[in-house]
Simulated assay, not measured.
Amino acid sequence: MYLPEIWILVAAGGVALFAGVVKGAVGFAMPMIMISGLASFLPAEQALAGLILPALVTNLIQALRQGLSAAWGTVRDYRALLIVLCGTIVVAAQLVPILPQAVMLLLLGVPIVAFALSQLAGLQLRIPARRGGRAEIMAGLVGGFFGGIAGVWGPPVIALLISRAADKRESVRVQGVVYLLGSVMLLAAHLRSGVANATTLPLSVVLTVPACLGMWLGFALQDRLDAERFRKWTLIVLALTGVNLIRRALTF
């Protein structure tokens, strides 16, 4: 179904606003919400390009919320994860222009549905904490692959933090720093791959505004919300949008 330009913009802005609210409230899930939502009515490559700048700017805000020295300490402590993640993003991103649309939609939809359903079922993905360097490399490889092709690298990072029993402040800060550097590499990689270009980036610039507004609203609502109920409904929305992406892939 063809959507007029204005309705595409309004729908995309709504997705970015909602993704920003969720990120502000719980600290993650923006890329998953944006890629699944945008790809429901935009080509997968354009949806991927659309999330790049909103993710970059909101991750910068999250990473520096506790100060520059705390952020730099995270870079030092998690350097193995960051090096592997960023390198894998660059490699995986070059696959996007050559992947068929149906394959792209499946690679977007299946992990999102799997993550959402596992969380709704109460399962916690954990990476063995023994030999921490190997755990970081594993998280970096998996996160970097899906980050490069879909802009989504959160679940392996969260699994690593759970395994290390990171407290809330450390968890939010580490996610912000990791996602920020990943976002920078994603932008650089897709400038090279051609996905981010003069045609696709203007939408990404526009979507940064509702994403940041949503994040501010999420910060304001953080202490007032029933966090568990909010998280549950967010996961349900993610699962439904992921199923829709799979449906689109199978009807190509």
Rank of each mutant, 00 (worst) to 15 (best):
P155N: 09
A39G: 08
L95D: 13
L85P: 05
L117D: 01
E45N: 07
I162T: 08
G147M: 09
A70Y: 10
D223Q: 15
A129M: 07
D167L: 06
A16R: 05
S193C: 14
W153L: 10
G194C: 05
G73I: 05
F252N: 12
A47P: 13
I246W: 03
W7D: 04
A159L: 02
A92M: 08
A114N: 07
R192E: 13
G27V: 11
I61E: 13
G27K: 11
R164Y: 15
D167A: 10
R130H: 11
F28C: 03
R192F: 13
V10E: 04
H190F: 14
L141N: 08
G140P: 12
M1Q: 07
S204P: 09
G13R: 01
R79I: 04
L68T: 12
L107A: 09
I236N: 01
G144I: 03
L99Q: 07
A29T: 01
S171E: 00
P31D: 04
Q66C: 03
Q94M: 14
W216P: 03
Y78G: 02
K168C: 10
A55Y: 00
A249P: 04
T234D: 00
G242S: 06
Q62S: 12
F219G: 05
H190G: 10
I61P: 01
L160T: 10
A71V: 12
P128M: 09
G182F: 00
